[in-house]
Design a protein around this nucleic acid. Structure first.
Lengths: 346, 346
DNA sequence: ACGAAGTGCGTTAACGATAACAGTCGGTGG
DNA sequence: CCACCGACTGTTATCGTTAACGCACTTCGT
């Protein structure tokens, strides 16, 4: 009806109806004081009548800033990423930016295309949780807009990032298991190419050294990518005669897989891992979880980015690195210790 | 360095370097056959050297279509919405559209602003999961672009929507509890202003009628908005001497709250509810869940929208209504039936 | 009464890309 | 020898908006 071919009414149309030029319409909408009250009212009336909405595309073309920042994540369905996205949104909105979200759906090779697409759409900056270890496309992107990394450090890039206390958290959680007397702890981790993978393994290892316990290499499984692969790996380990007396998982997906394996095996042993998750407290399992605020990662990343955008004309500040703290949470029954061995579920 | 004030190099810059006009650059990038091989190569070389990227903002201004569709949801952290978003992305990408995601962060009153913002940014269509029952802002939006509703039906609007079998699913799950002999089933539901709330209550009620069981009104709690309020409501009901022997929850948040209440009370009774959730199978509780594919809702919504965009110039088709099927899933130990009453956890 | 300062609004020229049109140039056929 | 065609490339105008400037007309000071 109102919508003509190629979009709704323009400022020119509004101006014609209100008997003024398009420029005056622009002024009214911008709340420029140099417009008489009478004119202002006529313009508003015309805007209402036509249902006029300002074309932000044209506006940002003229003004040279889109007011958008891009966020690239691998899997929105993982609460870690959706919370991170919420944190970014929160801060961005506060500073008048709009967030355009891109999801690579677990396909690492799609990420460069998404980044390019966002740049083509004139985002003023990017926040990326890099899916793989190749970051060349990010170096390219940095030629155009500032880039902030979240949850992974830059590899050969000079830019800001927000990290979790991966090493520290892993060490603390592992230490907690060791303190209970466990000496055969399995490590279920994501691919070593991922920063979080190696860093959390380092923490796992460090805790062992500090406790004077030699980790058993045959209990270390890396390269797990989702709950299914983790479940299988955990099942294999649990099946062994000299299996582990406790498990350490590097993220929520892997914990889920391991828990499912435990459940199917009809046994339970203490599990420590990264990422708290919904209902972790009602599972009735002895869980030691390294929890942190994914929202906060997003918020911090957004702050770093917006700060860089604000000082765009000055000397770019040196690359900053912000750390989000972790906190260890205990759930479920007190651990029976390794002596009890795997015990059947009640 | 490359980035000058107000953005990177333009076609004009590329043209100057390659000794051609901007128009020819445009032709090369569009793969127009009417360009000599020599020129084509010079242009590509210049593009590479300058790191040129086409400005999609300017392009869509000229071409009159942004290639973007907007998606408005209330809470990305809820897996229902993030999966829906993934479904939308999947189909949109397939058809060459980009998805711009907006999140109202549970604040109903922000939704109109988000919708307006997306329209200002020239999205070609909108998919909305309306947060409240007021839909006037959507009627306004429809003056500019096609709108498709997801998971909620239109209220006074003439447009497409994708729905879940709310009534059917609720009836089936409730019937399953009734078949086990339960006659005192509590209903924990979201606000009746929400379509899903009333529809699922209707199903709950219908199952009772069919079974010849009179529902106890004092066991019906509506207006629960999150896990916390649900937990409290469930706790109150469980505390009563004539409490329920089973629970029905209208969504995943409410189920979570109820489960937590059961856990804290140290008892367990069968629970039926909408939405499957992660780890539901390892909780060890008697669960009857109405599951459906949230991705599919998103996919269908995107298809309806894109279809409408394709036929923009023809006669707009009548409002369509697509339904996504539900499936009942059983988890946990076989129900002991109501006779057993609440039983302590092992 | 006459210039200075102010008020209110229109005109022009961009922003970057592109459709439509208008050349230019070498070669062909009449 | 000239009209004409096809292959290739440049010009102009435009999408919707807005910064910069300019013009008419008031108001005021001296």
């Amino acid at each position: 009806m109102t919508a003509r071919r190629g979009g709704g009414p323009t400022m020119h149309d509004v101006g014609k109806l209100a008997q003024v030029s398009a420029m005056t319409v622009s002024r009214v909408l911008k709340n420029d004081p140099g417009v008489s009250q009478a004119t202002r009212e006529r313009v508003f009336a015309a805007v209402d009548q036509l249902g006029y909405r300002r074309n932000e595309t044209a506006r940002s073309l003229r003004l040279g800033g889109s007011g958008m920042i891009g966020l690239v994540v691998t899997n929105l369905a993982n609460p870690f990423y959706s919370r991170l996205a919420l944190g970014v949104q929160e801060v961005a909105t506060e500073y008048g930016f709009r967030v355009v979200l891109s999801n690579s759906a677990e396909q690492v090779e799609k990420e460069p295309g998404l980044v390019d697409g966002l740049i083509d759409h004139q985002v003023e900056g990017l926040i990326v949780v890099p899916a793989g270890s190749r970051q060349k496309h990010l170096a390219d992107a940095m030629r155009h807009v500032p880039v902030v990394l979240a949850a992974r450090p830059p590899a050969g890039l000079d830019t800001d990032c927000v990290l979790v206390e991966d090493f520290h958290g892993a060490r603390e959680a592992t230490a907690s298991l060791l303190a209970e007397g466990h000496t055969r702890i399995a490590f279920l981790g994501n691919p070593p190419a991922l920063y979080t993978g190696t860093e959390r393994l380092r923490g796992f290892w460090a805790a062992h050294e500090e406790a004077g316990v030699e980790p058993d290499n045959t209990l270390i499984r890396q390269g797990l990518v989702d709950a299914a692969t983790a479940e299988q790996a955990a099942a294999e380990l649990l099946d062994r005669a000299d299996g582990p007396t406790a498990l350490f998982c590097t993220n929520n997906r892997i914990s889920h897989g391991a828990i499912r394996a435990l459940h199917k095996a009809g046994t339970t042993i203490p599990l420590a891992g990264f990422d708290d998750f919904e209902l972790s407290d009602v599972l009735g399992l002895p869980l030691t979880l390294v929890s942190y605020d994914a929202d906060e990662i997003g918020r911090q990343a957004a702050r770093l980015l917006i700060d860089r955008l604000d000082q765009r004309d000055g000397q770019p500040p040196a690359a900053r690195r912000v750390t989000v703290p972790t906190r260890v949470i205990r759930h479920g029954p007190p651990s029976a210790g390794p002596g009890a061995g795997p015990r059947p579920l009640a």
